[in-house]
Lab assay of single mutants.
Amino acid sequence: MTFKAIINGKTLKGETTTEAVDAATAEKVFKQYFNDNGLDGEWTYDDATKTFTVTE
């Protein structure tokens, strides 16, 4: 399945996608990506659209 992340950061904005077997796996991938890029913020997840949003 394809999962999307919308990034609303102070220094980084945009979208990225990942292929994962479930939402928990996708969340781990996205959180690692955000940690690697120095992002920290509020997380939400919309199961209907398979979209994570992080707002810094």
Score class of each variant (00 low, 15 high):
5 A>R: 00
51 T>R: 01
26 A>H: 01
36 D>R: 11
17 T>S: 10
26 A>T: 01
4 K>Y: 13
41 G>W: 15
7 I>H: 11
56 E>W: 10
55 T>C: 05
56 E>G: 06
3 F>Q: 02
25 T>K: 04
28 K>I: 10
52 F>W: 06
42 E>I: 13
9 G>V: 13
48 A>C: 08
27 E>C: 14
24 A>Y: 09
43 W>G: 01
53 T>C: 07
50 K>I: 02
45 Y>V: 00
23 A>R: 12
16 T>V: 15
46 D>H: 04
55 T>P: 03
21 V>L: 12
34 F>T: 10
23 A>L: 05
23 A>Q: 08
5 A>G: 03
1 M>H: 12
14 G>I: 15
36 D>L: 13
23 A>K: 12
24 A>S: 08
22 D>I: 02
14 G>S: 11
53 T>A: 04
49 T>S: 09
11 T>I: 11
37 N>Y: 14
35 N>E: 13
4 K>R: 13
37 N>M: 15
41 G>T: 08
32 Q>N: 07
2 T>P: 04
37 N>C: 15
44 T>H: 12
21 V>T: 11
35 N>R: 15
38 G>H: 09
45 Y>C: 00
34 F>L: 12
39 L>D: 03
51 T>E: 02
56 E>K: 04
34 F>R: 02
17 T>G: 03
12 L>V: 11
5 A>D: 03
20 A>Q: 06
38 G>W: 09
2 T>E: 08
38 G>D: 06
56 E>D: 07
45 Y>I: 01
33 Y>E: 01
26 A>Y: 00
2 T>V: 13
11 T>Y: 13
15 E>W: 14
27 E>N: 03
26 A>E: 01
53 T>Y: 13
17 T>A: 07
10 K>P: 10
53 T>M: 09
15 E>C: 15
39 L>S: 04
32 Q>W: 06
11 T>N: 12
48 A>G: 08
47 D>M: 05
24 A>T: 08
2 T>F: 11
6 I>S: 03
14 G>V: 15
20 A>C: 07
22 D>T: 04
4 K>D: 03
9 G>K: 07
29 V>R: 07
23 A>I: 07
23 A>G: 03
46 D>A: 01
34 F>N: 01
20 A>L: 02
48 A>S: 10
46 D>S: 04
26 A>M: 02
30 F>W: 02
46 D>T: 03
50 K>Y: 08
40 D>T: 13
21 V>F: 11
24 A>E: 11
16 T>K: 12
24 A>L: 10
42 E>D: 12
49 T>Y: 04
46 D>Y: 03
48 A>K: 09
31 K>E: 04
23 A>S: 08
27 E>T: 04
49 T>C: 03
15 E>S: 09
19 E>C: 15
54 V>F: 15
7 I>M: 10
28 K>F: 08
29 V>F: 15
29 V>Q: 12
32 Q>K: 13
16 T>S: 08
41 G>N: 06
26 A>G: 00
11 T>V: 11
40 D>I: 14
10 K>Y: 11
42 E>M: 10
56 E>T: 11
30 F>A: 00
13 K>Q: 11
28 K>M: 11
19 E>M: 13
20 A>M: 02
43 W>C: 02
7 I>S: 04
55 T>L: 07
3 F>H: 03
31 K>T: 04
11 T>M: 10
51 T>V: 05
12 L>R: 07
36 D>N: 09
42 E>F: 12
54 V>G: 02
4 K>N: 04
34 F>D: 00
38 G>R: 06
33 Y>K: 04
54 V>Y: 14
14 G>E: 08
2 T>A: 06
30 F>H: 00
9 G>E: 03
44 T>D: 08
21 V>K: 12
16 T>W: 15
50 K>S: 04
8 N>F: 13
31 K>Y: 04
55 T>D: 05
48 A>P: 05
4 K>H: 11
3 F>M: 03
46 D>C: 08
19 E>G: 03
2 T>D: 04
7 I>N: 02
14 G>Q: 10
29 V>K: 10
6 I>T: 04
33 Y>V: 05
32 Q>S: 08
21 V>H: 11
17 T>E: 07
33 Y>T: 04
34 F>W: 08
22 D>Y: 02
16 T>P: 03
31 K>S: 04
46 D>Q: 03
31 K>L: 07
36 D>S: 09
37 N>D: 05
50 K>Q: 09
36 D>Q: 13
35 N>T: 13
28 K>C: 08
41 G>R: 06
18 T>V: 13
54 V>T: 02
27 E>W: 14
16 T>M: 15
25 T>M: 10
10 K>G: 09
33 Y>C: 11
51 T>P: 01
2 T>S: 08
33 Y>M: 12
9 G>W: 13
51 T>Q: 02
27 E>K: 11
53 T>N: 05
31 K>W: 05
40 D>E: 13
56 E>C: 13
13 K>G: 07
13 K>I: 10
10 K>T: 11
24 A>M: 09
9 G>Y: 13
6 I>E: 03
14 G>M: 15
41 G>E: 03
17 T>H: 09
23 A>C: 11
34 F>Y: 08
20 A>D: 01
44 T>W: 07
53 T>H: 09
55 T>G: 04
25 T>N: 06
1 M>V: 12
24 A>K: 11
25 T>I: 06
29 V>E: 05
51 T>K: 01
12 L>C: 15
50 K>P: 00
36 D>P: 04
41 G>F: 15
7 I>K: 00
1 M>K: 10
9 G>F: 15
44 T>K: 08
46 D>F: 03
8 N>E: 06
10 K>S: 10
39 L>E: 04
16 T>H: 14
21 V>P: 14
25 T>D: 06
15 E>L: 10
13 K>L: 09
36 D>F: 10
39 L>T: 05
6 I>P: 01
50 K>R: 14
10 K>M: 11
50 K>G: 04
48 A>M: 11
49 T>K: 06
19 E>T: 13
55 T>I: 10
35 N>F: 14
24 A>C: 12
18 T>K: 03
40 D>V: 14
15 E>A: 09
45 Y>H: 00
23 A>H: 07
19 E>I: 15
55 T>N: 08
15 E>T: 11
18 T>Y: 08
5 A>V: 14
22 D>R: 01
3 F>S: 01
45 Y>K: 01
41 G>P: 05
7 I>T: 04
47 D>L: 06
10 K>Q: 09
37 N>V: 14
45 Y>L: 02
13 K>T: 09
13 K>S: 11
26 A>C: 02
52 F>M: 01
27 E>A: 10
56 E>R: 06
38 G>L: 09
10 K>C: 14
19 E>N: 12
32 Q>F: 05
54 V>E: 01
24 A>D: 07
20 A>T: 04
34 F>G: 04
47 D>F: 06
22 D>L: 02
25 T>L: 05
3 F>E: 02
46 D>R: 02
26 A>F: 01
43 W>V: 07
27 E>S: 05
16 T>Y: 15
16 T>I: 15
8 N>L: 14
32 Q>T: 09
6 I>C: 08
56 E>A: 10
25 T>P: 01
5 A>C: 15
50 K>T: 02
49 T>H: 04
50 K>M: 09
45 Y>P: 01
3 F>W: 04
28 K>E: 07
49 T>D: 03
52 F>L: 00
18 T>C: 14
12 L>T: 08
39 L>F: 14
1 M>Q: 11
24 A>G: 06
7 I>R: 02
11 T>P: 06
54 V>H: 03
21 V>R: 11
53 T>P: 00
28 K>N: 06
56 E>Q: 12
16 T>A: 14
4 K>Q: 05
40 D>A: 12
6 I>L: 07
1 M>C: 12
28 K>G: 07
56 E>I: 15
18 T>G: 02
7 I>E: 02
50 K>L: 10
2 T>W: 13
47 D>V: 08
7 I>D: 01
44 T>M: 07
55 T>H: 08
27 E>L: 15
52 F>I: 00
18 T>Q: 04
1 M>F: 14
2 T>I: 14
35 N>C: 13
